[in-house]
Nucleic acid binder design. Structure first.
Lengths: 147, 147
DNA sequence: ATTATTACTTTTGTTTCGCAAGCAAAAATA
DNA sequence: TATTTTTGCTTGCGAAACAAAAGTAATAAT
């Protein structure tokens, strides 16, 4: 539970936490693609290896970005859900989408369109609020047990 | 000049490019802290190793995020400057600042305040535009030679 | 009672990161 | 003009992160 930071800069410190290949991808899977179980994540297009997934989920839980919970009628399947701290990353995901749409397509020819990109661009704040509220409406009031 | 992408997702593809420990930190050093030479970067608080710096600068130039130029009266010192594609990352830097200010301080006790954080929060779009225009005013019309 | 599913862990590489040292060209200084 | 310093790197080696594959234990479904 002790993390290493390169220096006193807030931006660099954020990247000490988020700056790797997987953390923000996992956030995206949860927020945009509704993934919540270990199996959900392993079946995504990104094809994350199970050992890496396990270690990243543990790390994110420790940091308070996600929680690990269970449904009361199932002792096997765990639910991984975004906390407020995790949901607060939504603006970063949105800005990555927009930058990608305008600057990455030239490198990745098979990249999909974001269906919501125009809505995103025309009113960022509204889009962010909507995504966050939809997430909470779907996942915030489930009956579940913290473990 | 061939890059590997994990899948067709725009967000994941953006992170295939930006998702490492250094790229966004180097962008921040250029945009916020006015760093432009190899030496500038090595002297930053982040203390990047020279071999990593050299490889990242090369990679970023290949991608079109930065350019490598020279002043006409100096054959030694190179100037690394953000392109439009690199400047377009400003909103991501701003959102990282805001998330960090609210969520990272609990982990990094010695983290500095962003002096501009309140301005940033109160009008993001204006702040972003200002930063980008300041950067261009300072660096956009220098006499320099592309190499 | 048997099979399948879920959520991992373990093992064994491979690739990326990072420190330290070294080096060559250009620039500054004597 | 000769020497020293600065700048921008490269090289070599150890450490850490990432990744593919196989294995396991508990639970759930049949």
């Amino acid at each position: 539970m002790e993390y290493k930071f390169r220096c006193e800069c807030p931006i660099t410190s954020a990247l000490d936490i988020l700056g790797d290949k997987w953390i923000l991808v996992i956030i995206k899977l949860m927020l945009i693609q509704d993934k919540k179980t270990f199996k959900d994540f392993t079946e995504s297009d990104e094809a994350i290896a199970t050992n890496i997934l396990a270690s990243k989920l543990k790390y994110m839980e420790e940091l308070g970005i996600i929680t690990k919970t269970q449904l009361p009628d199932n002792k096997k399947t765990n639910l991984y859900l975004l906390t407020e701290k995790g949901l607060a990353l939504t603006p970063i995901i949105v800005e990555l989408s927009i930058w990608s749409d305008e600057n990455v397509r030239v490198h990745n020819k098979i990249m999909k369109d974001s269906p919501e990109i125009e809505i995103m661009k025309s009113d960022k704040a509204a889009f962010i609020k909507l995504k966050q509220e939809n997430y909470k409406a779907k996942n915030g009031f489930d009956i579940r047990i913290k473990r």
